[in-house]
Simulated assay, not measured.
Amino acid sequence: MDGKSKIPNPTARRLSLYFRELGDRRALDEKATMSSRQLGTALGYSDAQVRKDLTFVGQLGHPGVGYSVATLHDNLRRILGRDRSWNAALVGAGNIGRALLSYRRFDEQKFHITRVFDSNPRTIGTTIDQRVIRDVASIKEELVDCDIELGIIAVPAEHAQPVAEKLIEAGVGGILNFAPRRIEVPSTVVLSNVDFTLTLEQLAFQVNLCSTISHEEDDS
């Protein structure tokens, strides 16, 4: 099975983790093998879960031997689209946007933010890390023939939807949204949301739950 669109999102996230772990192992030994149990243990998953996930890769391993780390790593690289470079446009040159621009690992992993846009007149025309900040109103014109397939939204919530529409109109096929608001995109566009506040809220909930259970056990 090799259709990327058929891979469920939770599975795709685990495949990315497998890819990273296999890359670390491969760096130590190009000829290494690894069982589903070893891979699962390293990442906190059962061997059954690993085997099920890897059926999407078409790499079933060998009984008693396991998976060739190099072969499985290469297959995952292809499935995840990591065998090529990806250009991205960032909209929003505020705190989050600037932090993303300064993150060197993006370039190391072949994700290149090649265009930056903002709506602040005092910011437009200035540069961040040798990237000129352009007017958000010019997204469509600026992205013509730029081979940019990914868009990153780091703007206030009320501007997220209009920005998404501009990126989609410019031909972007995937959007990473950091704005704390749900945005609507057509089925032909892939959307991934990152909400820091929501993540912290869930973390606080889990800590609070553990604390409550601990107190109840102490009182019993």
Rank of each mutant, 00 (worst) to 15 (best):
residue 3 G to W: 08
residue 3 G to L: 13
residue 5 S to W: 03
residue 6 K to Q: 14
residue 7 I to D: 04
residue 10 P to F: 03
residue 13 R to K: 10
residue 15 L to D: 05
residue 18 Y to F: 12
residue 19 F to N: 05
residue 21 E to N: 02
residue 21 E to T: 06
residue 22 L to C: 01
residue 24 D to K: 15
residue 25 R to P: 00
residue 25 R to V: 09
residue 26 R to F: 09
residue 28 L to N: 11
residue 29 D to N: 13
residue 30 E to S: 08
residue 31 K to S: 05
residue 34 M to E: 02
residue 38 Q to P: 06
residue 40 G to N: 02
residue 42 A to S: 14
residue 43 L to T: 01
residue 44 G to P: 10
residue 44 G to I: 04
residue 46 S to T: 14
residue 46 S to F: 01
residue 47 D to L: 03
residue 48 A to R: 11
residue 48 A to H: 05
residue 50 V to R: 05
residue 51 R to C: 03
residue 53 D to L: 08
residue 54 L to H: 03
residue 55 T to H: 10
residue 56 F to A: 09
residue 56 F to S: 07
residue 57 V to Q: 10
residue 57 V to S: 08
residue 58 G to M: 10
residue 58 G to A: 09
residue 60 L to H: 09
residue 60 L to V: 12
residue 62 H to G: 00
residue 63 P to N: 10
residue 64 G to Q: 07
residue 64 G to D: 03
residue 66 G to V: 07
residue 68 S to Y: 02
residue 69 V to E: 04
residue 70 A to R: 10
residue 72 L to K: 01
residue 74 D to G: 07
residue 74 D to Y: 04
residue 78 R to G: 02
residue 79 I to Y: 03
residue 81 G to Q: 12
residue 82 R to H: 10
residue 83 D to P: 04
residue 85 S to V: 11
residue 85 S to K: 12
residue 86 W to Q: 15
residue 87 N to G: 04
residue 88 A to G: 12
residue 88 A to K: 06
residue 91 V to A: 06
residue 94 G to W: 00
residue 95 N to S: 07
residue 96 I to R: 07
residue 97 G to Q: 03
residue 98 R to V: 07
residue 99 A to F: 08
residue 101 L to K: 06
residue 102 S to E: 11
residue 107 D to N: 14
residue 107 D to S: 13
residue 118 D to T: 06
residue 120 N to H: 08
residue 121 P to M: 00
residue 122 R to P: 00
residue 123 T to N: 02
residue 124 I to K: 06
residue 128 I to R: 06
residue 130 Q to P: 01
residue 131 R to A: 10
residue 131 R to L: 15
residue 132 V to G: 02
residue 132 V to T: 15
residue 134 R to K: 15
residue 134 R to M: 15
residue 134 R to D: 15
residue 135 D to I: 02
residue 135 D to M: 05
residue 135 D to Y: 03
residue 138 S to I: 04
residue 141 E to Q: 15
residue 141 E to D: 15
residue 141 E to S: 14
residue 143 L to S: 04
residue 147 D to H: 09
residue 149 E to Q: 09
residue 154 A to E: 04
residue 159 H to W: 12
residue 161 Q to R: 11
residue 162 P to W: 13
residue 163 V to H: 12
residue 164 A to V: 07
residue 166 K to V: 00
residue 166 K to E: 15
residue 168 I to S: 11
residue 168 I to C: 07
residue 171 G to D: 08
residue 172 V to E: 00
residue 177 N to Q: 02
residue 178 F to D: 01
residue 187 S to Q: 14
residue 187 S to W: 05
residue 188 T to Y: 07
residue 189 V to L: 02
residue 192 S to W: 05
residue 194 V to T: 04
residue 194 V to S: 10
residue 195 D to A: 04
residue 195 D to T: 06
residue 195 D to N: 12
residue 196 F to W: 03
residue 197 T to D: 13
residue 198 L to W: 08
residue 199 T to W: 08
residue 200 L to E: 10
residue 200 L to S: 09
residue 200 L to V: 09
residue 201 E to G: 12
residue 201 E to D: 09
residue 202 Q to T: 03
residue 202 Q to R: 14
residue 203 L to D: 09
residue 204 A to F: 11
residue 207 V to Y: 13
residue 208 N to W: 08
residue 209 L to N: 10
residue 209 L to F: 13
residue 209 L to M: 14
residue 211 S to A: 15
residue 212 T to V: 07
residue 215 H to N: 13
residue 219 D to H: 13
